[in-house]
Design a protein around this nucleic acid. Structure first.
Lengths: 346, 346
DNA sequence: GTGAAAGCGCTAACAC
DNA sequence: GTGTTAGCGCTTTCAC
């Protein structure tokens, strides 16, 4: 049922070696036109499909790359995967996708499995700031590109949205609306996005003349609706109605905030403005529709894939820089000026 | 850097064949305990990772399976993939995930690629009712399990939610609320879910004594918010305020309906009740929170994977039946009794 | 321009 | 229980 190169060669009346050359774009030039045509015809007739294992065994390449995400069910990641897959498949690579379920051990397992499959390279969206598995893989010389989240020390190329600018735009928008007392529910401290957005927040708040008070920040332990809600309760219990706006570490956290506001009889944006981050699908369908930072996830996936493909093609050495893509605040209904008599420096 | 079996054997002072047996759970019994230990130690010391290509070449199996989805960005599919991946990886399989972008040609391409990779089997969530590519693959003897959507004629095993029961529950819920004039915005006619839910709708409506009028049904060409909105406009223009409730073919369509209601100054559920299908993430965060049919997508993925694994283990022949998993209507805020003076047989 | 032959890393049938 | 051997399907160097 699955024909081999030998069979194709026989049918075309040539040696398997010749058939190989005729079928391979790279070496096709070494073979006479007539032979190429005959071999191709034979291949077609037998619906020949080269055996990628045999080829890989010989060439020591698999034309497979691994894509590792922390949670495929998080709407953030499918677009990244799609973008990457598009570029990679166009370049002849097949993707092995692994879901770590936000568990560093499962990330390490995935790397093991993927390396057992001899993937040519890795795209990893699950990196923690201090990620032994990533470091080990990188040190082992496996081409690896990080997405969205980067590691602190290991010099691994990464492609990400511009967190700094995204937060800056959010804070600026709120300040322009008249807010002065703006809180931040930051993402997990073990993730680069968590700390970098938090850092950007403190910076922006100072820069733009809003209140700079540690009491206005609370860290979430995970990027989830529940954690967002928990942190929102803690924050509101602590600062009361002093804060007039909240910048959430991401959209899930923002949704948690919205839930808590409803639970406490507060109305967004009248009593409190809320800004998310990522602009996940359906965030425009919430009520109020969420003001949030749109991140071009598909582009990020594409860019990471391109970086990897270039790396694998070996033209230039290992890329080492972080590539940052621009992001845009999308203003919707969850932000408005603070109510009368509020929003003044506290 | 990547050690081979031969190196492991040398280090353990045995023949490669023996090392192979010692490392393979299946054949381990044929080797003395002492040898097994020595070989395992050597393997560990060299951090030996078997070369899956070499093994595959020899055994003619890859322990890889392809998972083909129409659109990974549709929140429906990631849980399916996760469920399947969980079961498959536990059984030692690695998943190759392909996204067809709802394009039959790309589905065919994916099958080609996947077969080129010699996957042992296929899980396919992108099947159309009349799907040549699926038929061809199945006829070629590749083990294949369909998910969610099935083909009309080809006898291919499938795992799906109970569309019939889901729609029946939706209609019954509406009838119990007092609705008599219920419309249906069905899914695409080239997908089994589209026609089967439509069929179930007509049946339920008759069975439960609501209006059975073709004018109350309108088919969407795709499962999308935009198509849902388009179909909703067509329907409302045709039947005016006669209909008091709409059963949408899926959640995206329902969201489109909600958009149109807002656009026309109608209030859900006061003026019109809306029921979705699938219970995608965040459907509980819309306002009104969407009443919809919860489908256990992760279980469906798991079940399909189990079916495939059993098939591949070769114990019993090819499964041929469709497995149907129970679904549950989740009543939220988008359904309510019809307003006074409406909802009577029209 | 094409044929011959070796070998990638592994498994399995066959010896002993 | 272990060694030997052949060969999976392909690419690639070396002849010619």
């Amino acid at each position: 049922m699955n024909s081999t190169l030998k069979e194709v060669a026989e049918r075309a009346g040539v040696h398997p070696g010749t058939a190989s050359r005729a079928l391979n774009p790279q070496t096709q030039a070494l073979v006479s036109d007539a032979t190429v045509r005959r071999v191709q015809a034979a291949a077609k007739a037998l619906s020949y499909r080269p055996n990628s294992m045999a080829r890989g065994l010989k060439t020591n390449r698999t034309t497979m790359v691994g894509i590792v995400v922390p949670d495929l069910s998080n709407p953030l990641f499918p677009p990244i995967v799609r973008g990457a897959e598009e570029v990679l498949s166009r370049a002849g690579y097949t993707c092995l996708i692994a879901d770590t379920d936000n568990d560093p051990r499962r990330e390490a397992d995935s790397f093991e499995t993927l390396r057992g499959r001899h993937v040519d390279g890795l795209i990893v969206a699950s990196a923690e700031r201090d990620d032994d598995a990533v470091r080990a893989v990188a040190e082992a010389g496996v081409p690896i590109v990080l997405i969205n989240r980067r590691t602190d020390r290991a010099r691994v190329p990464a492609v990400m949205g511009d967190d700094w600018a995204g937060i800056e735009q959010s804070v600026r928008h709120l300040v322009e609306l008249g807010h002065r007392c703006i809180a931040h529910l930051s993402g997990p401290e073990h993730l680069s996005t968590g700390v970098e957005r938090a850092r950007a927040f403190r910076h922006a708040v100072v820069e733009l003349g809003a209140d700079d008070d540690p009491a206005l920040s609370e860290a979430c332990r995970t990027y989830s609706v529940e954690e967002g809600a928990r942190a929102a309760r803690v924050l509101l219990d602590r600062v009361g109605d002093r804060a007039t706006a909240i910048v959430a570490g991401n959209d899930q956290i923002a949704v948690g905030v919205l839930d808590v506001l409803r639970e406490r009889g507060l109305v967004c944006p009248r009593d409190l403005s809320v800004v998310g981050y990522n602009d996940m699908p359906f965030m425009d369908k919430l009520s109020p529709a969420l003001t949030t930072v749109h991140v071009p996830h598909e582009d990020i996936g594409r860019e990471a894939a391109q970086t990897l493909v270039r790396w694998l093609s070996g033209e230039n050495g290992a890329p080492s820089a972080t590539t940052t893509l621009p992001v845009d605040l999308v203003v919707r209904e969850s932000t408005a000026p603070p109510r009368d008599g509020r929003g003044q420096p506290g």
